[in-house]
Write a protein that binds this DNA or RNA. Structure first.
Length: 270
DNA sequence: CCCGGAACCTGAAGGC
DNA sequence: TGCCTTCAGGTTCCGG
């Protein structure tokens, strides 16, 4: 579920909780496939005893820099959560528990799509090679190089993490609404200025959502189990059949790039 | 190169 | 109440 703003919220919570500098006394894995590599058994052995040197976000990944030249890459996919709650009783959806010397952190994931990858720092660039520049950082010229002249629908390209990382289904729809662009528009049919607007709107939506602690649509919860507040600000996502906040037209839904897409047929003409 | 569909999983919601 | 279908914030793989 989490897109860039939700992952950013998790990272900020981890730092605020004082994870940086802490030692991982123990890591227990209850669902083996949560660990992409190495094996779940080797994972527990390799993680134990290392301390956290850094925590940051890259696209939708949480990246833990660990002592001893290892990095832990965490992707929460659709329903993954990292939680640190007082008096928490783990339920059946908790698939891993990390003991940061008295600070327990729970990995909970209803749909079990999330993945942990432990890599040697030497191969970390390779492991993340498919992740493009962060959408909040990327400069227009670089982004245009990657996206310009392609025939695919703009929405599909915005979702492509190799072009720019961080946007997901909710924020792509929100950004395209703000830019006044139909999600199915082929990228090569857009002018340089329209593309500039789309990137600007993407960044604006991201910053705004971060300020509101992300979006809780189904089950996003931050570190302390609290929902994000951006849902109230959504202009099109999940509002099919409701009136456009700008012009009053009934919002529509169609499938683009295999994903449910929400838009205003008047504000975003095809 | 591009696209659609399936797979990976579980649960919520709506129709009958 | 229960059964069935559809849908869900993501990514990857496979075939046409």
């Amino acid at each position: 579920m989490p897109e860039l703003p939700e992952v950013q919220t998790v990272v900020e919570d981890l730092l605020r909780a004082g994870v940086a500098g802490r030692r991982i006394a123990r890591a227990r894995v209850h669902w083996r496939r949560s660990i992409a590599e190495p094996s779940a058994a080797a994972f527990g052995r390799l993680v134990r005893g290392r301390s956290v040197r850094s925590v940051h976000r890259r696209g939708k990944y949480v990246v833990f820099g660990l002592t001893g030249g290892y990095s832990l890459l965490v992707h929460l996919r659709m329903t993954g959560q990292l939680l640190s709650l007082v008096d928490y009783r783990p339920d059946r959806h908790v698939h891993a528990v990390f003991d940061f010397e008295g600070l327990p952190i729970y990995y909970r994931d209803m749909r079990k799509f999330g993945r942990f990858t432990l890599v040697d720092d030497a191969v970390r660039p390779t492991a993340m090679a498919h992740v493009g520049p962060d959408v909040l950082q990327v400069r227009f010229a670089e982004w245009l190089d990657r996206i310009g002249g392609r025939r695919a629908p703009i929405k599909a390209l915005l979702l492509d993490q190799g072009i720019a990382a961080g946007l997901g289904n909710i924020y792509v729809d929100e950004a395209l609404f703000r830019a006044g662009v139909h999600p199915r528009t082929p990228a090569d049919a857009l002018s340089r200025e329209e593309l500039r607007t789309i990137l600007r709107c993407s960044k604006e939506v991201m910053r705004l959502a971060i300020r509101h602690g992300g979006t809780t649509y189904i089950n996003f919860a931050n570190f302390h189990g609290n929902p994000g507040n951006f849902r109230r600000k959504l202009r099109v996502y999940g509002r099919t059949g409701e009136p456009c906040r700008r012009c009053g037209t009934v919002l529509e839904r169609l499938v683009v790039g295999g994903r449910s897409s929400h838009f205003c047929p008047v504000c975003q003409p095809e």
